[in-house]
C-alpha cells in the first residue's frame, strides 16, 4: 500500500515532441484514480511512466516514500493489467499468474498457495491448467487481474482493461474490479477513454487533454463544476450544450435579444460560452427559451431532442413518459445550472 506522487513529471520524446506537460498530483493510499481523456492525450504515456516502461524526461515520481525514476519496473512493486491482457500464450493460467513470483525466487509451494488464493477470489480455479487461447474474453481478463493480484503490489495499474470486452461483460467487470480494489485496499491508477467507466469507478478523476491535465476531482466535482469546456463536453453523456453569447447583468444574451439565459450571478461581462447539461432543461410552455426540435432520438428510459436554440446546436433529455414532437417549443432552465466559460480559453469563469 502506498501513495503515488508525481512532481512536475514531464515527457519529451527524442524527436522533441512534448507528449506530456509537467504534471503534479498525489494519489492517496488505497485510492482509485482514473486517468481519462481522448486517444493521444497522454494518459497511457503517463501510466507507462509510472510503470517504468517509459522513461521520465523530467520531474520526480515516487511510490510510497521512495523516488522510483530509475527503478526497474520489476522492482517498483507494481502490477499492471493491459488492454490486450498480454497473457503469455504458451503458459497455463497458473503459470501465467505465477511467473512474476517465480522470478522473485519464491518457492513452488508458496506460489501454488498464492495462485490458488487469487484464483478462488476470481472464480478461476477450474481453469488453472488451461491455456489463454482456451478461455473466453472475460476469463482472460480475470487471469490478467489474477496475475496482478498474486504479486500483492503497492500499486495496480490498469491500461484500458475493459475495452476489448462486449458491453454487458464490461459493466459486470467494472463492478468486479471496483469491488476487488476496495477489498484489497490497494492504490490503483486506471486509464480509460470511456467517461462512464471514469465516473462510475473513480475515487478521483484526472482529465487529460493534449498532454496536459484539464482537471482533477471527484466524479461529482467533475460533473458539477467542470473546469473547462473540454471537461464539460467530454464528461457526461449526452454531452453538455455549449452556446456562444454575451454575458451582462446576470444573464447571457444569445444571438438576438429574445434568447436570454438567466445565470443568476453578476460579473464576467463580455463574450462567454454558456454550458447547460441536457438534463438540466425541460419542455415548459411557460419557459423563456425557444427551442426548435429537428430530431427525436429514443434511448429507452430517456428521449433526446436535438435541435437549435438561437441558431446553435442544442440537445434536451426528457423522460420517456413526456410527449415530444418536432417543431418549436419553449424550455425552462434549472436555476443555477448555467456554467460560464471564457469565450477564448474555455476555462471556467
Amino acid at each position: 500500500m502506498a501513495q503515488v506522487t508525481l512532481n512536475a513529471v514531464r515527457k519529451i520524446y527524442p524527436n522533441g515532441v512534448e507528449a506530456l506537460e509537467p504534471c503534479s498530483f498525489t494519489i492517496n493510499d488505497g485510492e482509485l484514480a482514473v486517468l481519462v481523456g481522448p486517444s493521444g492525450c497522454g494518459k497511457s504515456t503517463l501510466l507507462r511512466m509510472v510503470a517504468g516502461l517509459e522513461e521520465i524526461s523530467e520531474g520526480d515520481l515516487s511510490i510510497g516514500d521512495r523516488i522510483v525514476n530509475d527503478v526497474d519496473p520489476a522492482d517498483r512493486n507494481i502490477a499492471m493489467v493491459f488492454q490486450n491482457y498480454a497473457l503469455y500464450p504458451h503458459m497455463s493460467v497458473a503459470q501465467n499468474m505465477g511467473y512474476g513470483l517465480k522470478n522473485r525466487g519464491m518457492s513452488k509451494a508458496e506460489i501454488r498457495a498464492k495462485v490458488r488464493e487469487a484464483s478462488d477470489m476470481l472464480n478461476l480455479t477450474e481453469f488453472l491448467d488451461r491455456r489463454p487461447s482456451q478461455l473466453s474474453g472475460g476469463q482472460r481478463q480475470r487471469v490478467a487481474m489474477g496475475r496482478a493480484i498474486v504479486r500483492e503490489p503497492d500499486l495496480f495499474l490498469f491500461d484500458e482493461p475493459l475495452s476489448n470486452l462486449d458491453a454487458k461483460l464490461r459493466n459486470q467487470m467494472r463492478i468486479e474490479i471496483r469491488a476487488l480494489q476496495r477489498r484489497l485496499a490497494t492504490t490503483a491508477m486506471y486509464v480509460t477513454h470511456d467517461q462512464i467507466e471514469a465516473m462510475t469507478m473513480a475515487d478521483r478523476i484526472i482529465v487529460l487533454n493534449d498532454g496536459k491535465i484539464e482537471q482533477i476531482g471527484t466524479p461529482n466535482e467533475i460533473y458539477e463544476h467542470p473546469a473547462s469546456t473540454f471537461v464539460a463536453s467530454f464528461m457526461g453523456a449526452p454531452p453538455m450544450n455549449l452556446l456562444q453569447g454575451i454575458a451582462g447583468g446576470g444573464k447571457v444574451t444569445l444571438g438576438s435579444d429574445q434568447d436570454v439565459l438567466h445565470t443568476g450571478t453578476e460579473g464576467n461581462d463580455g463574450p462567454v460560452q454558456a454550458g447547460i447539461r441536457p438534463e438540466d432543461v425541460w419542455p415548459d410552455p411557460q419557459g423563456d427559451l425557444a427551442f426548435d426540435v429537428d430530431i427525436i432520438e429514443e434511448l429507452g428510459a430517456l428521449r433526446l431532442l436535438h435541435g437549435r436554440v438561437a441558431g446553435q446546436d442544442f440537445s434536451v433529455a426528457v423522460p420517456k413518459d413526456k410527449e415530444a414532437t418536432t417543431g418549436l417549443m419553449q424550455l425552462s432552465v434549472k436555476p443555477g445550472a448555467v456554467h460560464l466559460f471564457d469565450a477564448d480559453t474555455g476555462r471556467r469563469l
Binding site: 510503470a51 520489476a74 502490477a79 499492471m80 488492454q83 498480454a86 503469455y88 511467473y99 512474476g100
Partner: peptide, 10 residues
C-alpha cells in the same frame, strides 16, 4: 505488451 508484462514480472 508481452515484453512489458514480462518486465513487470521481473
Amino acid at each position: 505488451e508481452l515484453v512489458e508484462a514480462a518486465r513487470i514480472d521481473g
